[in-house]
Write a protein that binds this DNA or RNA. Structure first.
Lengths: 190, 190
DNA sequence: ACTGATTCTAGTACCAACTACTAAACGAGG
DNA sequence: CCTCGTTTAGTAGTTGGTACTAGAATCAGT
């Protein structure tokens, strides 16, 4: 078995590692028929982190993917909207939204649905929640289809007042009154 | 400082670990205020593998599998807790939490942090949000470290009243008053 | 064939995050 | 009081490394 030269081995090492980040130095040493130390030197020169870091990196990418999917910008799907007037959205309570014990949806998802809807209904470049008074009337269970309706009550040039009611099969589960701050310029800075 | 009982701690441990597989025994011991050995015993009983194995597992999983499994249940990391009295959590506003345009965090994440904290601070099998009055005092920007503090004002047997304030670098960004419904039995059904 | 540089191998001390085990301390109940 | 479930403490051993030193092997050019 003819061994590779340094540069060649390092190229192959890079390929190997990026195609399978789970390879330990020991395995790599076997593969390239060199000592572990050589592999370590190679990694040092090529700035390849150790196996655990490589795996963590892969895992983080995976979780980030999920996060960007699950931490959606908008909770619920908007099914009807009349800007500056009213909007409707649908949110289905899935496994990830409920407490494990009793399968009741965590309150912040209902809030998020209502809040997203309020942001969406305001036809302005910037819309931030200023205050909210909310009531969780009835628990929402796993699988429930929550229809949320936002109605804009008034807009006085800076603040919009919005009433939101959410229902599951015609039954009220959540209601809230939101004050949204908005501007055309985005000049809000605290 | 009232610690959790074994079974309760183990349930919470499961949730914690499945929502964040990167937690080491050391971190978990800090979180639950028990020794590392206790965490190890818990993992042994619950068949939870060590961090590295968990990470490997995450790294190998298909993305859509994870999507259904590990939607984040809790927003923010609890850093101090005295059951039925007060609790502190940290939430860092990341890319997924902010509006693309102006990098201001969406209100429902701040709400979610506060809401999660209220659920956590109540030492009862069932705790649901009943009402909330909230103010978004100042916008939270990308990268901001939000420290949220929940203080239980009173618990009258069914309803707990909790004040929450959230700050970024000592400056108030959010405050709210939450009423939480709780029972020992879970007999709430609407 | 000898010199010098490059490359490789060997070996040590140290680390994190464990497993697997033993033993002691704590705490509530009978 | 003693007992049992639970918790904590401590030791030895493992994996897969880092960081470093030192020596051996190889090759290139003279």
């Amino acid at each position: 078995m003819v061994k590779y030269k340094k540069t060649e081995r390092q190229e192959l090492l890079l390929e190997r590692v990026s195609s399978d980040p789970f390879l330990t130095d020991e395995r790599l040493a076997e593969i390239f028929k060199v000592s572990i130390q050589t592999i370590r030197l190679d990694r040092l020169e090529l700035d390849i982190p150790e196996v655990r870091e490589r795996i963590k990196h892969v895992a983080r990418e995976e979780t980030d993917k999920i996060r960007s999917l699950s931490l959606q910008e908008v909770i619920g799907e908007i099914i009807d909207i009349e800007l500056n007037d009213h909007a409707l959205s649908l949110f289905i309570a899935e496994e990830g939204h409920v407490f494990k014990k009793n399968k009741i949806a965590r309150g912040h998802y209902l809030f998020a649905q209502a809040n997203s809807l309020c942001v969406a209904v305001i036809d302005q470049p910037l819309a931030l929640t200023k205050t909210a008074h909310i009531d969780f009337v009835r628990p929402v269970k796993l699988g429930d289809k929550v229809i949320s309706k936002a109605v804009v009550e008034n807009m006085d040039g800076r603040i919009a007042t919005i009433q939101v009611v959410s229902k599951v099969e015609q039954r009220l589960v959540f209601k809230g009154r939101f004050e949204m701050y908005y501007t055309g310029e985005g000049e809000y800075d605290g």
